[in-house]
Design a protein around this nucleic acid. Structure first.
Lengths: 191, 191
DNA sequence: ACCATATGAGACATCAACGTCTCATTCAGA
DNA sequence: TCTGAATGAGACGTTGATGTCTCATATGGT
């Protein structure tokens, strides 16, 4: 049966196209479908065969981003040991998907309430729980709300990814810059 | 002469339109010229009489943002006393313009090299100098580059403004949340 | 070598936003 | 009250991106 091979090739290609699209759209969020196709090295018609339209492409990117972020959350084992170390692990795991997440973070404002993927709420909750645990265990300061720390994590990951793309921050420093700034701000100050 | 009155009214109105446009575009960066006009309570034709086109509107917003940011930098007296306190003052002064700056920060990626206002470089340098001074005086940690701390300031101000718009952070907490997180991350840790 | 499928290139209609225009109305100052 | 400028509403034409279509070609499996 060619169905197995067909399906496999499709998903592989689909994956590759999505990666390329994410990389391009992270830099230029208004990139044309034609530009996306060229960047992926395929024709515009083929791009439309994979994704019904621009909306479908963005939604697929959103889905991919949710998957990657969720995988990062799983791999980071947020409930193990100190919250600081868990946060460090999370940032490390987020690194490969930073571009995609940065794009989705700024683009999410466009999903005007009508159709927000419920996946984000679940992921938000997991991150929020980590900060809350850190606060309850006396590791993090309590005057910064978990919701804000969560928001700050996204913002710093996104802006650091953007700074790396623009050459203002070295790629190898991504984890250190993001983690240290956020941890320094979140950690409780010993008196 | 009606010219004086005319000019005054125009600039006043222009200012008001720009404010409204900034508030709207910060939430929905793809807002139509028609939506911008409606939001400002004027007709689309009138909007075009004030600003030659969408480009001109964005450029005017950019100019306004640069002005406001520069004024904030001046009022914050970045060279006085401790760098920490100067940074706190800066964030306080940025508060009123946070929405506009948040919009411009995310929108700047669209100015693809061809026409970047040189004003930003000057402002970047002033902020960067503040962080550098803090490092040289032993107040800030030196493993985070001034360029990254500058970027982080923009990112945190922007995302906090956005969080306030969405009700995830209380408006009165803007300064505290932003300043404390950034300062905690920037400050040198006593051993 | 053959055939089915996927692909790339391009043509085409559609559509939304833009920019320009006109015209009736409103409003402020003389 | 009169007059001229500014405004709002709307009617255009234009443009750029989108989505759909066809057809020739390439590719991969048999």
């Amino acid at each position: 049966m060619s169905h197995m091979v067909y399906g496999c090739l499709m998903t592989m290609d689909r994956e590759r196209v999505l990666r390329t699209a994410a990389a391009l759209l992270a830099r230029k969020s208004t990139a044309t479908m034609d530009e996306v196709a060229r960047a992926a090295g395929i024709g515009r018609a083929t791009l439309h065969r994979h994704f019904a339209g621009r909306d479908a492409l963005i939604r697929a990117l959103e889905q991919l981003g949710i998957q990657e972020f969720e995988a990062a959350l799983d791999k980071a084992r947020l409930d193990d040991d100190a919250a600081s170390d868990a946060l460090r692990r999370l940032i490390t795991e987020m690194d490969p998907a930073a571009d995609l997440l940065a794009f989705l973070y700024t683009e999410n404002q466009l999903f005007e309430g009508d159709q927000i993927n419920e996946g984000w709420a679940r992921l938000d909750a997991r991150v929020c729980d980590l900060f809350r645990r850190g606060q309850q265990q006396g590791e993090f300061r309590i005057d910064l709300t978990p919701a804000w720390l969560t928001e700050a994590l996204y913002a710093l990951v996104g802006s650091c990814a953007w700074a790396v793309m623009d050459g203002r921050v070295a790629k190898k420093d991504f984890q250190h810059m993001t983690a240290e700034l956020l941890l320094g701000g979140a950690r409780r100050v010993e008196k």
